[in-house]
Measured scan of single mutants.
Amino acid sequence: RKEMTAACTPRRRIINLTSVLSLQEEINEQGHEVLREMLHNHSFVGCVNPQWALAQHQTKLYLLNTTKLSEELFYQILIYDFANFGVLRLSEPAPLFDLAMLALDSPESGWTEEDGPKEGLAEYIVEFLKKKAEMLADYFSLEIDEEGNLIGLPLLIDNYVPPLEGLPIFILRLATEVNWDEEKECFESLSKECAMFYSIRKQYISEESTLSGQQSEVPGSIPNSWKWTVEHIVYKALRSHILPPKHFTEDGNILQLANLPDLYKVFERC
């Protein structure tokens, strides 16, 4: 597991931080080997919608929660590849102030007048994250320049770009939802926020969305749709870069829909 690298990086740093090793061990302890084997050997059937997909393993048909699986995938990559990410360069710098204002204007932020003026909160978020810029760049390849612009994001899987519609809320939550006081809790909560931002979430995906850094293989055609990215990038990574937690067998994120021999018997009677 320590050699797990989802995106190509030129050289690998050895990380011996106790906090990170502890988080890696927790993933191992909570892992479910049968689910790992199923995901490793599954045959992708198709997307139901951005949140759900169908896959077959041996004779069984499964309904998989793409949102939760991708979130767990990105969390584990962030923990196992800690401080070893490439950088996704933004085509132009994104001012943190503008991103924070967009987030505060969104109902998702939960902002009320009692929280104070949005401009003041946005300025605080910019200054707060600028103070964390060195650590964010060093460990997470999340790059913020001296003017308070976001200029780079971590490359977690080759050819995958997170849904940038979720970027404003991500920046807001970096400042408000991460435990910045304790090292282990900081790395864990920061990785979880980043994983949620990178995950496939239906509120940020339309039929026209593209999450891939590449064009489709047909010359002159439109960019790959999110469905292509889910199948050929995300579920491909799920084959080798995730140890599913045991609770996925109990919380409805992986559901067995049918045993195909039983279905064949039904059709034979028709």
Rank of each mutant, 00 (worst) to 15 (best):
A103R: 00
G86Q: 11
S206Q: 04
S225I: 09
Y160S: 00
S221D: 07
R13G: 10
G31T: 10
E193H: 02
P117W: 15
A53Y: 11
E3Q: 11
L64P: 00
Q256G: 09
K131M: 13
L167N: 00
V87E: 07
E250Q: 12
G152C: 10
H232Y: 12
N41G: 06
E71D: 07
R36W: 15
K118C: 15
C47Y: 04
F187M: 04
K131S: 13
D105Q: 06
L99I: 13
E25D: 07
Q30E: 12
H232E: 09
R201T: 14
A237I: 03
I144S: 01
R12L: 11
D251K: 05
K236L: 02
N179Q: 05
E92I: 06
K265W: 15
K60R: 09
V161Q: 06
E127G: 02
I157C: 10
T66P: 00
N28F: 14
I79S: 12
G148L: 04
V266S: 15
S191W: 03
H247P: 13
E217V: 05
E250I: 15
R269W: 15
S206D: 08
F170T: 01
H57T: 04
N159K: 08
N253E: 05
T59S: 15
E143Q: 04
S22W: 14
C270H: 10
N253A: 06
N41R: 10
E177G: 03
I77T: 12
G252Y: 13
P95F: 05
H232L: 14
L142D: 00
E183Q: 01
S91D: 11
C47D: 02
Q56D: 12
V234K: 00
N224K: 09
L21K: 04
I27Q: 14
R13V: 14
M101Y: 13
E143S: 06
L121Q: 01
E114M: 14
F82H: 12
N28H: 05
R269E: 07
Y75T: 12
E29M: 13
S22V: 11
E217H: 09
S212I: 11
L102H: 08
L255S: 03
L35K: 11
I77P: 00
H40M: 13
L104C: 01
R89C: 14
H241L: 13
L69V: 07
I151L: 08
N224S: 11
M101C: 15
N179K: 03
Q58T: 08
D145G: 04
E182R: 04
F267W: 14
E3S: 10
A103M: 01
E119A: 04
P168K: 03
F128R: 01
W228R: 11
S19L: 15
K132T: 01
M135I: 03
Y204W: 07
S91I: 11
D251T: 05
F44L: 09
L136S: 01
Q56S: 04
E29R: 04
S189P: 01
K236H: 10
Q51R: 10
P95T: 08
S221A: 08
E26F: 13
A100E: 00
T229C: 08
E92Y: 10
L54R: 00
N84H: 12
E231T: 14
E71H: 03
L243E: 09
Y75K: 05
I171F: 14
P117G: 15
K60W: 12
V266L: 15
P244A: 13
Q214T: 08
E127M: 12
R173E: 01
G120R: 15
Q24L: 13
Q203C: 10
T176H: 01
P163C: 07
L142G: 01
K184D: 03
L21F: 05
E114S: 05
M38S: 10
L102M: 06
L153Q: 00
P107A: 07
L61T: 01
V45M: 02
A103Y: 15
I205P: 09
A6G: 13
G152Y: 03
G213C: 06
F140K: 01
Y75W: 12
L17W: 12
T229K: 12
Y204F: 04
V266R: 15
V161D: 09
G120I: 15
E143Y: 09
E185N: 04
W52L: 08
L54I: 03
A122P: 01
A175H: 01
S216G: 07
L155H: 07
G120M: 15
L174Y: 00
K2A: 12
E231L: 01
F85Q: 04
S106F: 02
Q215I: 08
S206I: 07
R89F: 15
N224E: 07
I144N: 01
G252F: 04
F248V: 11
Q24Y: 10
A83T: 11
V230H: 08
E25F: 14
S199N: 01
N16L: 14
P95S: 04
E113W: 15
A122M: 01
I151T: 06
N253T: 08
L99M: 04
K246H: 12
Y80L: 02
P245Y: 15
G46N: 03
V34P: 08
D145M: 01
F44T: 08
V34M: 13
E188D: 04
L35E: 12
L129P: 01
N149R: 05
T9Y: 14
L35F: 11
P261E: 07
F128S: 02
S225H: 07
T176I: 06
K131F: 14
E193Q: 12
E183G: 05
E123L: 15
E134Y: 03
C270W: 15
K60I: 09
T112P: 15
L104K: 00
I79Q: 14
I125Q: 01
N84V: 13
A100N: 00
Y124I: 10
A94T: 04
F170I: 00
P93K: 02
D115I: 15
E188N: 06
Q214M: 07
R36N: 13
E25T: 10
W111Q: 02
E71M: 06
E165Q: 03
Y198I: 00
Q56R: 04
W228N: 07
I14E: 04
R269N: 14
P93T: 07
Y124G: 01
Y264A: 03
E108K: 02
A83M: 02
F197I: 02
P107D: 12
P154A: 01
N41C: 07
T59W: 15
L167W: 01
E268M: 12
I233D: 14
E119L: 07
I79H: 15
R1I: 09
F140M: 09
P95K: 03
F187C: 09
S212L: 13
G166V: 09
E188S: 05
I169A: 14
P95W: 12
E188Q: 05
L23M: 10
L156N: 00
K132F: 08
A53S: 07
C8M: 09
Q56E: 04
D115R: 01
F267E: 01
H32C: 10
L90S: 01
I125P: 00
L21D: 04
T249G: 12
V48R: 13
M4S: 11
L96F: 00
L102F: 11
N41K: 06
Y264H: 04
S240Y: 11
V126H: 06
L96R: 00
M101V: 13
G220K: 07
R173K: 09
D262G: 10
K184R: 04
T59Q: 04
G120T: 06
E183V: 02
D115G: 07
E127D: 07
F97L: 02
I242A: 13
L63F: 09
E123G: 04
G120A: 14
